[in-house]
Computed example of a mutant assay.
Amino acid sequence: MTVRTIVVDDSPSMQKLITAVLETDPEIEVIGTASNPIEAREMIKVLDPDVITLDVEMPGMNGLDFLERLMRLRPMPVVMISSHTRKGADATIAALEIGAVSCLPKPRMDDEAALQEMRQNVKAAASAKMAIQGRQRTSGDARTKPARSAVLKRKRGIDVIALGASTGGVEALTEVLSGFPANCPPTVVTQHMPEHFTKSFAERLDRLCAPKVVEAADGMPISEGHVYIAPGGVGHLTVAGRTEKLCRVQPGQLRSGHMPSVDVLFESVAKAFADKAAAALLTGMGSDGAEGLLALKKAGALTIAQDRATSLVYGMPAAAERLGAANHVLPLRDIASALFGGGTEVTQNVCA
């Protein structure tokens, strides 16, 4: 099946570059290019694409305003293309919460790994089309505003929680972490995201959730009531120590096609905390995290995979399920309480 794609960017040279990158894959066809949202709207009506790529920053109606209207009136898979700037990163995180499938930096022809990632993201976005349309029909604005929720008090001793996600992970992690109380166990997170974007993501989560959410740094002590997000593109996040718990962020080779890698994080948690850990592998394409979740299960940790019905892209959790790595396969809404052991004493979360 060919993925029919429209490229929306105000730069003619960037339109040509993105088109050239995508069309090196025989499974992708660029059926049109648009310079602004008005042109894009008319083109979408006529051509009915499977996916659009959308520049965050454009004259007139910006990409975020256009995306919000598109997802409300005609939901479809959108891959956001952003500059490597703080403004671009902030806008991209907002776009992911509105409903974009993934975010990517502007392409460079000398970075083949990034070009391949763009092609893979467009194809993954197409596979998520039905999920996006179904989600928009049922969830409305609740998707971007996590509701106040009760958090089940844990019965078992958990020293560390680890979470991994990729495509669709911004929404998934927001929902899971909005179920965490202010005094949650130290929580470490790897979300596949470009460099510079993870700081904006951490800051946005920090505004939404009760625990303190920060971008992890090498040597940073980890403590109760804190969530640590792996920085994008600079190294792998790992944890060390039972007595003095520390984040480690160190350069390395790609693992499962990614840096940071969920597998690397999960395996470090299994080694350091064994049966005192709990972990969940959420929505995303590929298989990163599946082997790490299996290592955690073998070490005695509580392991969870998100189910097919609530995953935007059922790749990573499916790989974990095939390996038998998950103690439980659960819908997204049940994962926070399961991580805390499913106790019966209910405390009210204070996330907005």
Rank of each mutant, 00 (worst) to 15 (best):
M76H: 06
M76Y: 08
P77F: 03
V78S: 10
V78W: 11
V79C: 07
V79K: 02
V79E: 06
M80Y: 00
M80F: 01
M80L: 11
M80T: 02
M80I: 05
I81W: 02
I81F: 04
I81R: 05
S82E: 08
S83H: 11
S83N: 14
S83L: 12
S83P: 08
H84M: 15
T85N: 14
T85F: 13
R86Q: 15
R86H: 10
R86D: 15
R86I: 14
R86L: 13
K87S: 13
K87F: 07
K87V: 13
K87H: 12
G88V: 10
G88P: 11
G88C: 12
A89C: 12
A89W: 09
D90S: 07
D90N: 14
D90Q: 12
A91H: 09
A91P: 09
T92V: 12
T92F: 06
T92H: 08
I93A: 07
A94R: 14
L96D: 06
L96C: 10
E97H: 12
E97S: 06
E97V: 10
I98M: 10
I98N: 02
G99C: 05
G99S: 09
A100H: 00
A100S: 10
A100Y: 00
V101I: 11
S102N: 11
S102Q: 12
C103G: 15
C103A: 15
C103K: 06
L104E: 07
L104A: 05
P105L: 07
P105V: 00
P105T: 04
K106T: 12
K106C: 09
K106Y: 03
R108K: 09
R108M: 10
